[in-house]
Design a protein around this nucleic acid. Structure first.
Length: 419
DNA sequence: TCTGGGGTCCTAGGACCC
DNA sequence: TCTGGGGTCCTAGGACCC
């Protein structure tokens, strides 16, 4: 058996955790730029606030009801996530870190008679000790465990645990689940399934896996097997290194000049390079893109993209920034109102198996020592204490965060930065 | 006026090899 | 008039996840 532990309304719960006056109140957490809703408390859901709802559509609801709004505070959520994962590790030797608010756990070897007690205790303890309510679904496959988790939230909220451990429970759960609510079945696939007369998870569990593969994909084939109780998607304990590392953000206001866009891009490049070094990799190239506001009906649209290669695979921020600046200049054109810029590191590989260029004489040791000291200084003193001049000091491009909460759980230097 | 950001895997088609 | 068969690698786009 395996389980999935999922934090309820995670971002909203994190905000509430540090402000008891928010108990029982509708809370929403906004995306970057305070653009749209990405998390809601139960009370907010009850008011009809939908996931992804643009902020301006909330205006009327907010007038009528005291909705508390928050800009997303990933420093806080990331740290809470780290704490909860630490607790989860006390309950199972094998854990897969699946997302910021979800973990799969191996529950094999537990006597079935005690399974419920064990999981229930785990759920209560984590909820109590972290201050974030969690729900646990348990079954023989990941796909079924996800369905069990939905049940634990919907039908068995007070308990917070649901286990699919008998054939009759499995069938009952599948019959009560629509295809669009199955993990790995999105909007496109579910509407195609509906057109073929398949509406519930139970319907889908009765098709032949090879039919699913022929008519859809190997992904849906695995889903069918997993609904039948046959494990196809194993637990992955070791988190793999990223193959792409990207950063893109919408500007706080539309930009027309090159300079602020270049400054923003230099900052995003510094971020992705930092992440690259954290996983001890180097990148063989970069991809840069630029975009106008695609929601606008009147603005001229322009979405250029370009990729370039490094002379030798590298993790050296100044070099990557230089490359990014050259790429940006080659796609930037005047006469457009730009909404976002982004960078992706591509062709990522381990630092040690990076290829050398026999015609290139860069002193890598020197670069490594320099960037190591930069990372060290920034870790101790706070992000961007030491940075590239190209990253600049202007703020015209920076995102809107008008409802940001405190970084309650992390270092002083971070807290000082927001004030 | 105002609509997020960061990922993965799979597949089809093109370009190339012998 | 009639022109093979078996591969690999790369890329772009689609679908999905949180």
């Amino acid at each position: 058996m395996l389980g999935i532990i999922d934090c309820n309304n995670f971002f909203a719960s994190c905000e509430r955790c540090f402000d008891p006056s928010l108990l029982g109140k509708p809370i929403v957490v906004y995306s970057n730029n305070d653009g749209c809703v990405i998390a809601r408390s139960e009370e907010a859901k009850a008011l009809g606030i939908r996931m992804g709802m643009p902020a301006f559509e909330l205006k009327d609801i907010v007038k009528e009801h005291p909705v508390r709004m928050f800009s997303s505070n990933y420093t806080l959520y990331g740290d809470m996530s780290r704490r909860i994962k630490h607790m989860i590790n006390q309950f199972s030797p094998r854990v897969e870190d699946y997302s910021i608010d979800e973990s799969f756990i191996d529950l094999s070897g537990l006597d079935l008679i005690n399974l419920f007690d064990y999981v229930k205790n785990m759920r209560d303890k984590i909820t109590q000790d972290s201050g974030i309510p969690v729900s646990i679904g348990v079954a023989s496959t990941k796909t079924l465990a996800k369905i069990a988790n939905r049940f634990s939230k919907k039908q068995f909220r007070a308990v917070g645990v649901f286990i699919i451990d008998t054939e009759s429970t499995r069938i009952e759960a599948l019959k009560a689940t629509k295809v669009e609510d199955i993990w790995m079945v999105g909007r496109r696939i579910s509407s195609k399934l509906n057109a073929k007369g398949i509406f519930t998870a139970f319907d889908l569990s009765n098709v032949s896996p090879s039919w699913a593969r022929t008519n859809f994909s190997v992904v849906l084939e695995k889903t069918v097997y997993e609904l039948q109780g046959r494990l196809c998607i194993p637990l992955e304990e070791k988190s793999k290194n990223k193959q792409h590392i990207a950063s893109q953000k919408s500007f706080g206001s539309l930009q027309t000049e090159l300079e602020p866009i270049a400054e923003a891009l230099a900052n995003y490049t510094a971020r992705v390079a930092e992440k690259l070094r954290q996983q001890q990799s180097v990148a063989g190239g970069i991809e840069i893109w630029l975009g106008t506001n695609n929601f606008s009906k009147t603005d001229k649209q322009y979405f250029p993209k370009i990729s370039t290669r490094c002379d030798i695979p590298t993790d050296f921020t100044p070099y990557l920034i230089k490359l990014a600046m050259e790429a940006l200049k080659s796609i930037y054109k005047t006469g457009f109102k730009y909404k976002r810029v982004g960078i992706m590191l591509i062709d990522i590989r381990g630092k040690c198996d990076g290829t050398l260029n026999m015609f290139h004489s860069v002193n890598r040791d020197k670069q490594d020592k320099l960037i190591y000291q930069l990372d060290r200084i920034n870790m101790i003193n706070g992000r961007d204490t030491l940075k590239s001049a190209q990253q600049g000091f202007s703020s015209s491009w920076k995102m809107k965060q008008n409802h940001l909460s405190r970084k309650y759980t992390t270092k002083l230097s971070d807290i000082i930065q927001i004030s």
